[in-house]
Amino acid sequence: MDGYSFVELNEELLGKIRDQWKAKIEALPDEAIDILWPTYQRTVGWCEKYVDPNQESGDLWLHVVVDGDGCPVALVELTNAHRAKDPSIKFLNIDLEPSSIMNLQDSVDQESLGKVLNVIMFAITSAFAIAINQVRKFKIYGRDDEIVSVFDALIAKHMNDPEQPFNIYRQQRWLVIEAV
């Protein structure tokens, strides 16, 4: 899909996030920099801890969506609870690169939104493929009501599909998909 790849966060990708995302923020007006800079610093600091072999990251499993030019376009927060009583891989969140986010936009460019949805779909599908192969259960967290609406639309669609290869249901704000 669009030449993207899905790679666990490493030193090289962290360096690219640090440099390229910083450059994109610094190209924005001062007011925008003031808004985004603390989040950028917090994200980079968090990623530095993740790649530091002396730091414990628990079940957290950070991945990056990389485009065909090798540029990081999204940071994906997963947990890999494969040793838990109920093993699963969980999709917690996705942080898009600064020029793709909606924070500072006043209108919707449908073409840009379509590209962003492609990145999100690639991240979710990649994580789903790993989960189904490794632990056979995948969960996605719906932090806002809009994404929970997406889950409900998906479940409604899936219920009408007689050849479903997995069970899919909602558990509070989580969408759960289990291989049959």
Partner: peptide, 12 residues
């Protein structure tokens, strides 16, 4: 409405 979707924004 799109700005309410956490995946599309940075939570500042």
């Amino acid at each position: 409405d799109l700005k309410k979707i956490h995946w599309l924004v940075w939570d500042t």
